[in-house]
Amino acid sequence: MSEMITTLIKERRSVRKYDPNFKIKEEEILEMLKEATLAPSTSNLQPWEFIVFLNPEERKDLRAIAYNQEQIETASAVIAVLGDKEFYKNIDSVYDSMSEAGYIDASSKEILVGNAKRTYPYAPEEARKNLATFDAGLAAMQLMLIAKDRGYATGPMGGFDKAKFSERFNIPDRYFPIVLITLGKENAPAYQTTRLAIEDKVKFI
């Protein structure tokens, strides 16, 4: 592992105190999300969506839904990561794009599309939600490391009312909220944490 990625992993902390006057341009947030979504996903079907909260009025409502946590309003942006439980609807567009890019030939595309269409539309909803949650989590973690590399702080937040979130922000039934990620400039050091001994968490067989 390179020294740079090791440093990023070791220095990333979940930040709660942000400089409320610091702004990040929409274009840069898009760049970071584009890089984050290079994360692996189930059959490359990319079962994630993002809502970037910048508007102060919208964030006041979001803060209430997130149990009044102040970083919702002081961070430069809050990124809601959503899962797509109907990600099978991406099958044609994903494999058409791969074919057009020359990454798969016609016969491979036919096999991949056929396998996906026989599998995912008929999988139980809970199974599809689990896959989407897992994949979106990979993208979320990648986003936080990308932000750290650019000098920004982040903090993942699972503590919010997901039902109220979906209602207030008119989330279609196809999607479901997973995590909020605050993004901005650190205004106070995050507290340090420890980890349990890895020898107690690993079994070689």
Rank of each mutant, 00 (worst) to 15 (best):
Y175W: 09
N68H: 09
A127F: 12
L82Q: 04
S166E: 02
I198L: 11
L145D: 06
K117W: 10
P47G: 00
I146F: 06
D161Q: 08
E199R: 02
S43F: 12
F169K: 06
R13E: 08
I178G: 03
E73A: 00
Q46I: 06
A197K: 13
F87Y: 13
K85V: 01
M32W: 15
A190W: 07
E49F: 01
I178N: 05
E27S: 04
G151P: 02
V113K: 00
A80F: 09
R150L: 14
I24A: 00
K109V: 01
S108H: 10
E31S: 01
Y18Q: 06
L180S: 12
M1I: 05
I29Q: 06
T6V: 05
S166H: 10
K201E: 14
Y120R: 07
G114F: 00
I51M: 13
Y122H: 14
A140Y: 05
M1A: 07
P156Y: 03
P172N: 02
K85N: 09
L30E: 15
V94Y: 05
Y175R: 12
G114L: 01
L112R: 10
Y67P: 00
Q192V: 12
I24P: 02
A116H: 03
P177S: 10
A36W: 05
Y18T: 03
M144C: 07
K23Y: 09
N115R: 08
F87I: 00
G159Q: 12
D105A: 01
I79E: 13
L8A: 03
I178A: 07
E26P: 03
I205S: 03
W48Q: 02
A39F: 11
A116V: 02
R118C: 02
N130M: 03
G102E: 04
T193K: 15
A190C: 05
A106R: 15
M98C: 07
E58W: 00
K10M: 04
Y191N: 15
I91S: 07
L183N: 04
S166W: 09
F87V: 09
E31T: 06
V81D: 11
L180Q: 14
S93G: 08
R16K: 15
R195S: 06
E199W: 08
E58H: 12
Y120T: 02
M98A: 04
E26D: 15
L112W: 08
V81T: 05
N170H: 13
K129H: 07
F50K: 05
I205A: 07
R12E: 09
L33R: 12
S41Y: 05
A139H: 13
P172Y: 05
G114T: 06
S76A: 07
D149R: 15
T194W: 13
R168F: 12
L131H: 09
K17G: 10
V78M: 04
Q71S: 01
T74L: 00
E27C: 12
K89E: 15
K17M: 13
I178V: 05
I29S: 01
S76F: 04
S107R: 12
L33F: 13
Y191A: 14
Y175A: 10
T193R: 14
A39C: 03
N130A: 10
K201C: 11
F50M: 08
I72A: 03
R16C: 01
T133K: 14
I29R: 00
D161S: 02
S93P: 03
A101S: 11
I91A: 01
D96V: 03
Q71Y: 11
A139D: 03
K148L: 13
T7I: 09
T193M: 10
M98D: 08
T6P: 00
